[in-house]
Design a protein around this nucleic acid. Sequence first.
DNA 1: ATCTTGACATGGA
DNA 2: ATCCATGCCAAGA
Length: 97
Amino acid sequence: MDEELHERMREAIRDVPPGQVSTYGDIAAMAGAPSPRMVGAMLAEDGHDLPWHRILRANGTPAPHIAHEQLARLRAEGVLADGQKVNLKKYRWQPEN
DNA sequence: ATCTTGACATGGA
DNA sequence: ATCCATGCCAAGA
């Protein structure tokens, strides 16, 4: 597969600051990934050393299998969730420039 | 080579 | 809110 893209996705995720979040789609767009699926696919095997908990789905909910852990980590950074949904309007990270 | 499964997104019913 | 269809594409089986 494309190592270039792989690395760009990792970078984009590393750039999301604590206390803020981003989405699979946003990361994919920033890294120039052909599909948001690639972001999840990458995290599944190579995401152990990344702030994967700052990545949410487009609607603000986390991926089901890790929801509990993810919300706990976010809560520890000050990102509060309404049930399973995080308020993206409020915490979504927009790279300025 | 074909099929299935996924840390997804979007739009329609 | 929920279900479905499509687009996307890497990995395995």
